[in-house]
Nucleic acid binder design. Structure first.
Length: 439
RNA sequence: GGCCCUAUCGUCUAUCGGUUAGGACGUAUCCUUCUCAAGGAUAAAAGCAGAGUUCGACUCUCUGUAGGGUCACCA
């Protein structure tokens, strides 16, 4: 049995840095193609030579690569102008389009030879894979412009010709393209091309429920990369905006996403981009990483820390952050004391209703215990100290110990600190604290 | 304004005529705890409105309402 291979495409125009709303379309087109063993192609829509910039195109390629959305083919619309012109000519020859001499709208006064599509105003009906039947009366469209001149094709003709020539079978794109579809169908029919299947995705919305846009603060995906987010998390999150496979599993890898993807489960209504949830998803993806990868990641952000210290610190760090980028800020407050001896504050080191001499006494006793303790894990250290702490009041013992070691009112537990610091450093810090307390 | 699309907790969503309307994020409380997190538990929180169809509607139909998209010689 011969079934034609499914081909989808992501067709951004390189006129700016693209945000998640844009790439979300790519994710869906990719998932659909891969799910069906088809091809996913990237087409740079750069027919507008004025606004298209190479740097933006580069950013698109870079972003897709980072996300892991590999495409099978890449095209540049501007390289197909010959083709567009050929079909434009055909349309004119067939009497389905005509050249119209009109004054340019830019006020320059030049007379242009626009190509207008001869629209007889029929009703266009198409079956959207997500929304069902969509019916449009094209009368009020008039004879719309499809090229600025025979050699300067515009969006609609370029899209129709390219999709045909590239063998695109399924067009997954944003809902904002629904109004364009009837025009493109008209052109396509005039050209006699087969009809692709359309699937218009619901929009990604910002907090105010309007279309996500740069103006509303939507960031380029590469910014998320730079902030330390994981591509797998971004992908996972984007896939769940307007799609849900059912079931209660929420964390998916790209491969798993492809596996469960089902075009009939795509929603119709727009969805707000929720930063908090993204943050949570990212944390979950960090937890999924191997310790080797986690270690390398925190090493990049905590360059001043000795490697063996980071190894010990890893579980604590992973537990505290939801994004490796957090380390840029967290590092200075939460973990800095590990490599920088704290300044002893004798007032703060004393627990609630206790006093300096008691704090000092407890520290000295703990030091004695630690000297004999097993430093191989936080747990073994806890065992060495807990009995004493319980006897003398946990607050009385553990608070001064933690303060002496970290100098901070909020930090990880003292056992972990001891474990990470090692016996020598721990003794030095306890001695320092006692000296201040005793004087 | 014309045309088009949409409508379940604050947010993302499950439900494909019969459920105490489920989960997650976030929020609150409690437990754990020397502190902060993390973790565990619990709670509050939704079917836009009105008509139909049906023994029975969140689910199907219609109307209204609300929100959104789009109306270029951009894509």
């Amino acid at each position: 049995m011969v079934t034609s291979k499914i081909v989808t495409r992501f067709a951004p125009s390189p006129t700016g840095l693209l945000h998640m709303g844009n790439y979300r379309t790519a994710v869906f087109a990719y998932m659909f193609a891969k799910k069906n063993g088809g091809k996913f192609i990237l087409r740079i829509e750069d027919t507008d030579r004025e606004r298209s910039k190479k740097e933006y195109e580069d950013n698109i390629v870079e972003s897709l690569e980072w996300l892991g959305l590999s495409y099978d083919e890449k095209y540049r619309q501007s390289e197909h102008v010959e083709s567009h012109t050929k079909y434009l000519q055909k349309l004119i020859n067939d009497g389905k389009a005509y050249i119209s001499k009109e004054e340019a709208k830019d006020g320059s006064g030049v007379i242009r030879e626009l190509v207008r599509f001869k629209n007889n105003g029929q009703t266009v009906i198409f079956e959207d894979a997500i929304r069902g039947k969509i019916e449009t009366d094209t009368k009020d469209l008039g004879d719309f412009v499809i090229a600025k001149s025979i050699s300067e094709p515009l969006f609609h003709i370029a899209v129709v010709v390219d999709d045909y020539e590239e063998g695109v079978t399924h067009i997954l794109r944003g809902e904002d393209h629904i109004p364009n579809t009837p025009r493109q169908i008209l052109i396509r029919e005039a050209l006699g091309f087969p009809q692709p299947i359309y699937a218009h995705l619901p929009l990604v919305l910002s907090e105010d429920r309007t279309k996500l846009s740069k103006r509303k603060g939507a960031l380029p995906v590469t910014d998320y990369r730079d902030m330390g987010y994981l591509p797998s998390a971004i992908l996972n999150f984007m896939a769940f905006i307007g799609f849900n496979p059912g079931g209660e599993k929420e964390i998916f890898t790209l491969d798993e996403l492809v596996e469960v993807f089902d075009i009939t489960k795509i929603h119709k209504g727009g969805a707000i981009f929720n930063k908090e949830k993204l943050s949570w998803v990212n944390k979950e993806h960090i937890k999924l990483q191997s310790v080797d990868v986690q270690l390398k990641s925190i090493e990049r952000h905590m360059k001043d820390y000795p490697e063996d210290m980071l190894k010990k610190l890893l579980p604590t760090v992973i537990e505290k952050i939801s994004n490796y980028g957090d380390l840029a800020t967290v590092d200075n407050t939460e973990f800095r004391f590990f490599i920088k001896r704290p300044v002893v504050d004798v007032e703060k080191i004393v627990w609630k209703n206790s006093n300096k001499s008691e704090a000092s006494q407890n520290l000295k006793s703990v030091k004695g215990l630690l000297l004999k303790a097993d430093f191989s894990s936080p747990d073994s250290l806890k065992q060495s100290i807990m009995e004493y702490a319980e006897k003398n009041g946990k607050g009385n013992v553990l608070w001064p110990l933690r303060m002496a070691l970290s100098g901070q009112e909020k930090s990880v537990d003292p056992f972990t600190i001891c474990y990470v610091l090692g016996v020598e450093e721990v003794v030095i810090r306890i001695d320092n604290a006692c000296q201040s307390l005793d004087s």
